[in-house]
Write a protein that binds this DNA or RNA. Structure first.
Lengths: 221, 221
DNA sequence: GCTGATCCTAAACCTAAGTATGCTCCTCTC
DNA sequence: GAGAGGAGCATACTTAGGTTTAGGATCAGC
């Protein structure tokens, strides 16, 4: 419609999902590249985990196809490393000689699927579709949370304290008594909170507090 | 402390978790029974899925140890049947000759673990501990939700409508305009809602609406 | 020593929310 | 057809929430 994307499948558009393939076998890499391109998916292939880590990952929905048996690092250890590094990308494992304990460990750690070679193309495509959908959802949620955190970060310490008490349902006078200030001051803080958090109603603020998992501060003693 | 529970481990107390074992091999059943009893867990064993289904399940945290290869029904199909029947009990699978696709299917369907025979006793105990903990949590959440639903069920249709609008943050006058009644009537409904739901503040009501996943009704047209 | 941010407060004022009393109308059930 | 329950409205009143204006106190950083 825009005239720019005149390729039949719009591969490489800025919001197109990406499939990352990490496998030390070049023929596997190329086969998967062709498979995914044939259905219009953008693909990046790597020969090792290190290579993958060095590339920069654009901020779009994506997933990782990983052989469980990698040259230096096992696929499972790589999965753990990614999680530790805060890189949460859905992983689809492939294996030629995997066993059940490996499978259980991978799935417990959140893998989307675990395919045994040789697998049917359709099984891989189904797994990738599910993985990208999962990533899309988690990215949406992460976006909402981080936007909310950015607003919350603009609050002063006192305002955060008042926000916690407001969103647990205390009245202004109770909050005032709890933290030892005048009710009018609570009102001022409250007004600032609503403005800074861009909340149009108390109900909205409560939902924000829920999403931020704000805990009511324990009263002294 | 109560004087009643003078058995060393208090097996069979009313809130003790239960481990259900379903296996067609009597020697496996007895070995598992002994294993779990040795750590103070209450155990019930069954030779088949049908037997398990006929027994009544007390309302306590529990888990199910299932051989993937059962006489009539496969363990995986039984897992699916339980889910369809609304019986959500954490399952630990055992297998002598399982394969990876089975494992993946079981884990995707929510199994806690998938142990290959022979397994170490400690691995089984760890899996059961995790499974019971998971069930305890899901039971707590289910209890909260069902209590909330019981309160919500006492609301009239109009009250539910108003509750949805109140908890999205609309003011009384906006609600009145939206559903075409007077503001004072909204206030009456609102008071009834707070009383029936036992909410001490708007914040509490909003959280209840969140837990109940109440959607704002679409305005006509 | 000035500036800006944060926190606190007061007075005055306005709007929103909540309660109580009393009444009408409709519908469903016994 | 009487009673119960739900829905609706009006008047009157009280309390809670929120804003504006106008200050004072403290502290960090330049």
């Amino acid at each position: 419609m825009t005239g720019r994307s005149n390729s039949p499948r719009n591969i490489g558009g800025p919001d197109e999902p990406i499939v990352y393939v990490v496998d030390d076998d070049v023929s596997v890499r190329e086969a998967l590249r062709n498979l995914f391109r044939s259905v219009g998916l953008r693909v990046e292939v790597f020969g090792s985990a290190a290579e993958f880590l060095q590339s920069k990952l654009p901020d779009v929905a994506s997933c990782l196809i990983l052989d469980i048996r990698l040259p230096r690092l096992s696929g499972l250890d790589f999965q753990a490393d990614l999680a530790k590094a805060g890189i949460h990308i859905p992983i689809v494992f492939m294996t030629g000689h995997g066993d059940i304990p490996m499978t259980v460990r991978a799935m417990k750690a959140g893998a989307v699927d675990f395919l045994t070679k040789p697998f049917r193309d359709q099984d891989m495509l189904d797994a990738v579709t599910a993985a990208i959908e999962r990533d899309r959802n988690s990215r949406n949620e992460a976006k909402i949370r981080s936007d909310l955190h950015a607003l919350f970060a603009t609050l002063t310490a006192r305002e955060r304290e008042v926000m916690a008490l407001v969103t647990t349902g205390l009245m202004n006078k109770q909050i005032a008594a709890e933290i030892g200030i005048a009710e009018i001051t609570v009102k001022i803080h409250r007004g600032n909170i609503m403005r800074k958090m861009a909340a149009k109603s108390l109900a909205e603020l409560v939902k924000m507090a829920q999403a931020l998992e704000i805990q009511r501060p324990a009263p002294p003693q």
